[in-house]
Nucleic acid binder design. Structure first.
Lengths: 311, 311
DNA sequence: GCCCGCGACGAAAATATCTTTCATTTCGTG
DNA sequence: CACGAAATGAAAGATATTTTCGTCGCGGGC
């Protein structure tokens, strides 16, 4: 009866991600959209004042947020913890970290009449935050799996439209530089047409912040059904796109506003993920990648002018 | 040897010592002599492995130390906490602090055999650094001038090839969204062809990290000579491209290496500059920009699938 | 040498806390 | 406007923590 500490909740399946230590704030923002109203209230309170909430019992937090204990436990579960007890523990850790000289994480939104210097500062801070959150919330197991798949792929297709299309192109450019066969598709029709050609051993990557972009989901689904290894880079780990993804890489969802549309910070997080993929693959295939990189660099040298200005 | 220590804990007076935050290890050592054998075992276990103990229940810790729950609670009390629950919370905080304390990897370069988690951390740190540097080094006067030019431009051309081409497209996408006439050119010939059409009141923007990319300099020169307002976004403020630029926006030049080619961090800085330009213009033209933004958002709504409400 | 008192210690009861179940309410939908 | 699905909270059920209380060992006094 006393030996019940080690439970096997790997079989539970629902929680492949281990509880996050400091990535909690990021997780809250990422998962908030898929929460119900009451749960959002709880999540907000938690993200707002970790230290305060850590001092509260389930009942206390339920009362504070005007909900019930059940809702609090449900929220804790959604955030990836077995129960409220563990969330509370993580909260205490987070509070301690913040205490010891961490960023206070206060961001005022960008206003219409902000001076340009403030705009620069706020944008920079915001994107830095996005990077930190994305890095903290990235599932390294999934990432490693995606890297392995990419490194051994016969060919790789990357799907993305709009702003995500540029990220897709960025990844493609990088992979091509280290000698991998990669192609970015932003035309939905051509994307599907190409996806049909994929088979086991190939890799398909879908990049969509919302996870609901049909033009991107469709080719991924086709690739998935053809047996290719599929990867989704999205800000919503529970969105439709993940249905057809063998590996899901989550980017942080930062605050957005009128002057700060989604395309901005989501792109930053996506690019970090893309960079991680690239470096990971470059590591695995180093012997081939390194010469390829310098070769591509040298091939472009003659297109650059002398560094110094003329007479 | 008799214990001549007289402790008066029985009285229900207010505890004079507030719960220790991180000085727990010290407290353990200080109080160890006044502890009984069993309590010392508990205290030792706690000081030895805060993280591990934080994961244990009273019963678990009692068993681990070969004592009883009551003893564990007594030890917690002696250490200044109301009960074991609070000791555990403090323990979790301590563990988190220790965890965050070790971050030695970030200054070193990315190595071929770095574990994937380190790659993520290093890349994120690096790009954060680039953002901070770029923000700090950005000339707000030049930026404001560029924004003014953009906001009043009849049309805007953006030149960039390779990785910078994607940044150029990003800027173009954003400007189009707020109703400005903008076009990105990555084809050098077409770029020049278009640059010839520019005249005073138009804006041309060249994006090149090295500042030496002929394919980008050339169209900027043409635009410059035609009387358009020219802007250069580059990492080298003294490079050839600045010859033909009315306004120079400098991005940070972070260190690069074999596994970390220039395209990575330079792109991050360039995107920050682009975002600043965009927000700046959106501010200036707010009355027109805001409706345009929401309109473009709504126009795309039907291309998104309903968010899955998973079982 | 034997008995007595003091305090450490743990088993188990008592309490607090967390988790689960289930009925009710709410909301979107046809 | 009725229907069904999802969300929510009240309360029962399960665990964990705290308290109580009796046993045991130790050292000193008689």
């Amino acid at each position: 009866m006393t030996n019940d500490v080690k439970e096997i909740f790997g079989s539970a399946g629902a929680s492949p991600a281990p509880p996050a230590p400091a990535a909690l704030a990021a997780k809250v923002r990422t998962l908030a959209p898929s929460m119900t109203r009451s749960m959002q209230r709880v999540a907000e309170a938690v993200a707002d004042d970790p230290a305060g909430c850590a001092a509260l019992t389930v009942t206390g937090l339920a009362e504070l947020t005007g909900t019930s204990e059940a809702t609090v436990v449900r929220t804790a579960r959604l955030l990836g913890y077995p129960g409220y007890r563990d969330l509370r523990l993580a909260l205490a850790g987070l509070a301690a970290q913040q205490q010891s000289g961490r960023a206070p994480a206060i961001t005022t939104d960008i206003a219409v009449d902000d001076p340009i210097a403030d705009v620069v500062a706020k944008l920079a801070y915001d994107e830095q935050q996005t990077l930190a959150d994305t890095a903290a919330g990235l599932d390294t197991v999934q990432l490693a799996a995606a890297v392995t798949a990419l490194a051994g792929a016969r060919r790789t297709d990357v799907y993305g439209v709009g702003a995500s299309g540029l990220v897709a192109q960025d990844l493609t450019q990088k992979l091509l530089r280290i000698g991998l066969l990669a192609h970015a598709h932003s035309d939905p029709h051509l994307a599907v047409t190409n996806a049909v050609q994929l088979r086991s051993g190939d890799v398909a990557i879908a990049i969509t912040h919302s996870g609901t972009t049909g033009d991107v989901i469709e080719p991924l689904r086709v690739a998935f059904e053809r047996g290719a290894t599929t990867v989704a880079v999205t800000g919503r780990p529970d969105s439709p796109v993940t249905q057809y993804a063998d590996h899901v890489l989550t980017t942080s969802t930062a605050r957005e506003s009128e002057l700060r549309p989604a395309a901005m910070s989501s792109r930053t997080g996506q690019l970090l993920v893309v960079d991680c993929l690239f470096v990971g693959v470059a590591q695995r295939t180093y012997d081939a990648a390194a010469p390829a990189l310098s070769a591509s660099y040298e091939a472009l040298a003659h297109r650059h002018r002398a560094t110094r200005k003329g007479p």
